[in-house]
Structure formats: structure tokens, C-alpha cells
Design a protein around this nucleic acid. Structure first.
Lengths: 249, 249
DNA sequence: TTGTTCGAGTTGTACAGCCAACCCTGGCTA
DNA sequence: TAGCCAGGGTTGGCTGTACAACTCGAACAA
């Protein structure tokens, strides 16, 4: 739960999500009308609509004028936190996550890094190279670049700490928005050594720029997964479009 | 333009999007207050909030309590239509799309297809194998499965038709929701022959299930891209989570 | 049988208002 | 100097209302 604040619409959304997961309306079944739900939960229709917008964005229900909402699927949707943190994701699927910092370097930011992290010309950054494991098996190499003030916190962590994002969040570093680019990369010498594959082997690559509530970039990361260990799933609709296709690189 | 209906909040959203793209507020700059915008556009604050929710979902602005919204980026965001249709996407980036149907087969649906398209046990499907090109160069192999009533429409199209989704939409087949899974696949004999690569070469794979406004599946597709031709980009936030990570297959 | 019309039901859009939670700054205090 | 605090500004959450746009089945007509 990335955000546990209890508000009416969150409670309604959580309850409906549970009901859908339990199959109370069936796959392809119809939800009760907004007005129905409003009286049932003792809230206004606006609040119900707010809750339903959440489920809509998650791809759990459709919605169109004139007819009741239809259940699209009962798939469990991950929270923002589980997506951002390898550790939380691994635990959510019942795996034992691990990690080891291979290298931390502090040095002046290059042009791309300054652009991505929106830094001043003379700013320094921390570059962290890390291998991540599931049940002890290496599955991903993570190269993260942090602005100086956050990198300093990361450097102070235990190199064998399972998670970085969790302690960072405990120290007040908030992650709220992330922009991901997913494509394919070929293993370099570091990847091959850390993942136990060959140089040139294909890897699924996710590049990510994460920002805090104020819109300041807090990390710029490049993760490379061994094939078969993960797939990325996205839901989008005419109502909510957050996915797009780009030309390579 | 996936949806050209003119409503107040759409107009406001479009105008703000343009202003942001023009750099009127700068990257990292602050938007005017909701109340400000409301009086400026002559609408209520609720309508402004609706417009801003759109921009928020697209990752253009942040939003948090207590302070004005901040511009996150000025990146052009693709419409749902450009994402769904290879043709529209190609044109939007100034490339010349092409396509050729290699094979259309009609036969009983197997178990996976019945599950994905939510079909009856004895239902038949159309399987379309197609190669897609950019400026004449093959970049993607598309394997789409359609339920019978839609497949019949596809079969009637010109095998060299550049787009299938456009004529389908003209004939009243609506695409509103899509669920995507992105991972890596290895080229089989068909892929190698059509894309001009070797069997076993890595390809970026996107599997997609698209549904209509009523929630009925209209296509189940598997696209395989040559590396370097496309990357998928996603924005998500604590407010809107539509991306997730899955275990491989 | 087929097509049309009608109307009840439902969601979409928009308005207005209220208060809480939160950010930030400037002034005050120790 | 450093820290605290008050207050104005801003967004989040919620309510209530009204009407428009749309779906879908039932009744009806050809």
C-alpha cells in the first residue's frame, strides 16, 4: 500500500476491488449502479465515481454512458510501491529478494545525467551498480544514478541491504511519479559477470526516471533483467493513456 | 484524436497541454492555481480539476496538496489510437507504414484463445499473420486472433491494406481498453523469414488483449519487434497505476 | 417476422460550496 | 543566529444538484 491514508473513496475502491477479486460480480458481469453503491456505502455519487475511476485506471472495469459498468478482469493489480521497488515486488509474489552493491562511485554528472536529473552544470552524482536476486539467483542488474543529497543517504546504507527504496522512504525521500522506457539491451561484460550469462545475450531493459511530489527527479535507473524472469504489463484505455510507443532509443 | 467530443474539460486540457508543450510555464515551472484557471476559462473549479486529472495521468504535471502543480515534462504523449494502431503510430512519427498479410486461417479456437477472447467451447477464430514495415523495411511480425464476427471483416480487407484497425473502426468495431504484456521472445522460423533475422535472435514482444466499450474482447495479438525499432514508454504515479511487473510467462 | 418508437435506467459533464490538510513564507522569539 | 509560529494560499475530499447523452429492452406497428 503505497498510500494508506483512509479516505472514503479509497475504502469504497478497496471494497469493490475485493468484491471483484472474489468474483462477486463475475468476469464480464455488471456492477451495481453508481447511485446504488452510493446509498450502500453511505456516500455521495461523486465519491463513488472517484472510487470507480481508480478501478477503471487499473483496468478492472469498463465504463460508458448509458449502461452499467462491466467487470473486465479480476487480475490483481500491483500498487505503485510494488512496481517501484524490486524488493516489494518480489515479496508480493512470494519470492525472497536479495541484493548486493557491486560499486558506488561519486563523480561529476555527465550531460545525459544532468538532463535526466535536472542538475546544475557542476553537480555531482552517485552511481550505484547492484545485482538483484530472487531466492539467491541473480536475475537483474541495476544501475542507478542519484543526485548528490540522495546518493549520500544510499552510500550510508548496508551494501547487503535488501532494499534501498524502503529505507530511503523512511528517511523522507518520496517517490510519486515514474516514467519508464522498456526495450531490449545486450549484456555487456558487467552484466554477463553478474548475471552469469554471455556477453551479447539479450536482456529486457527498463529505464526509469522517478520524481518526488515536488517534481524533482530523485533517481534515474537502468535495470536489465534476464529473459523469462519478468514481463511488464500495462493497462490503458481511451480514458487513461499512460503507455506509448517510441522509436528505438 | 481517439475521442473528439468537445467538452469543457477536454478543451481546457487540450489548451493547457499546448501551453505546456510551448513551454509557457517551463519545465519544472508552476501552473496557475485551479481557481485562477477556472476564472480564466470561465468554468468551475471541478471542471478544471477534471482537465488537470487528464494531464496528471499523462505524466505532464504533478499535484499535491498545499502547493501549485508543477510541470514534469513537455513530452508529447500519444493518444490511445496511436498506441493501438501501428499505422497511426508510424504516421505520427513521420514514417511510412506498410503491411502485408501472410496468412489468414479460420479454425476452432484452442483453450488459450477461448480464455483470452472469452468464447464458447465450439467457437471459431480467425488467425492473421502479418508483417509490418516502416518505409518498406520489415520491423514487426504481428499474430492476431479475432473472434469470428470480427475476423470475417478482416478477411474481406485488401491483403495489402496498410491498416486493419482503421477500417474496422469505420465499420463500427470500437477499441477502448487494452491490456499489454511486454517481454522478450526468440525468433522462430516465421519471424526469421519475415524479418530477415536468424532463428533464435531476440525480439521485443508485446502481447495485447483489446476490448470494446461493452468489455467484450475484440482481438488478441502478439507483436514481435526487431530490436532498436521501438521502445515502450509508460508513465505511472501513486495517483494512476496501470503498469506492473509480472513473473516471466 | 422485422423494424420503429418510447421510456426507464444509467453514466457523463458541469456547477456551487464547504472544510480539511498541507505548503510556504515572513515575522517573531529565544 | 536559529528555531518557532501564525496565517494566507493551494489542492484534496466530499456533498448535492441538474441536465445531457446514451443503452437497452419492451411495447407497438408494419
Amino acid at each position: 500500500m503505497a498510500d494508506g491514508r483512509q479516505t472514503m473513496y479509497r475504502k469504497v475502491a478497496a471494497d469493490l476491488r475485493q468484491a471483484i477479486a472474489d468474483g462477486a460480480y463475475g468476469s464480464g458481469g455488471r456492477l451495481p449502479a453508481e447511485g446504488e453503491l452510493a446509498t450502500r456505502y453511505g456516500v455521495s455519487r461523486g465519491t463513488v465515481r472517484q472510487a470507480l475511476a481508480v478501478l477503471r485506471a487499473d483496468g478492472l472495469v469498463t465504463s460508458r454512458r448509458g449502461t452499467r459498468r462491466v467487470v473486465l478482469g479480476t487480475a490483481r493489480v500491483q500498487s505503485f510501491g510494488e512496481l517501484l521497488s524490486f524488493t516489494r515486488w518480489a515479496r508480493s509474489i512470494g519470492e525472497e529478494p536479495g541484493g548486493r552493491v557491486v560499486e558506488i562511485i561519486r563523480s561529476p554528472a555527465d550531460e545525459v545525467e544532468r538532463e535526466q536529473l535536472r542538475l546544475e552544470p557542476d553537480a555531482e552524482v552517485y552511481r550505484v551498480l547492484r545485482v538483484r536476486t530472487l531466492s539467491g539467483v541473480p536475475v537483474m542488474v541495476e544501475r542507478t544514478v542519484y543526485p548528490e543529497h540522495i546518493g549520500a543517504l544510499v552510500e550510508a546504507l548496508d551494501p547487503h541491504a535488501v532494499s534501498h527504496t524502503v529505507p530511503l522512504q523512511e528517511q523522507g525521500v518520496l517517490f510519486t511519479d515514474a516514467h519508464h522506457t522498456i526495450d531490449l539491451a545486450l549484456a555487456d561484460a558487467d552484466d554477463a559477470r553478474l548475471l552469469g550469462c554471455l556477453v551479447g545475450d539479450p536482456l529486457l531493459r527498463e529505464r526509469r526516471r522517478t520524481t518526488d511530489p515536488a517534481g524533482s527527479p530523485v533517481e534515474w535507473s537502468q535495470d536489465r533483467y534476464l529473459p523469462g524472469t519478468v514481463a511488464f504489463t500495462v493497462h490503458n484505455s481511451t480514458a487513461v493513456t499512460s503507455l506509448s510507443r517510441r522509436t528505438g532509443i
